[in-house]
Amino acid sequence: MTKSELVEALSKGEDLTKTKAEEIVNLVFSEMTNALANGERIEIRGLGSFKVKRYDGYSGRNPKTGKQIKVKPKKLPFFKCGKELKERVDI
């Protein structure tokens, strides 16, 4: 399923126009992006939680050429599946 199909399903299920449904979907994901960009945690009961992990920089190697490179510090988001989703997805 893609975002546009998600919009379509929401518009049908909630009797909203496509434009409105799209606005809602975009708002939800942009709010979540903003929260993570501010370093905040997100917890949605039943779905799961997101948190940002920080990694220090390190010097690594390009595995193909063997050339030494510096890897800059970075932040990456992590998702932990919630209890309800975990139980529903598992067979």
């Binding site: 929260a35 905040e40 945690r41 997100i42 917890e43 009961r45």
Partner: peptide
């Protein structure tokens, strides 16, 4: 702070 469904 943690963002929850209520915040969304």
């Amino acid at each position: 702070m943690t963002i929850t469904k209520a915040n969304l």
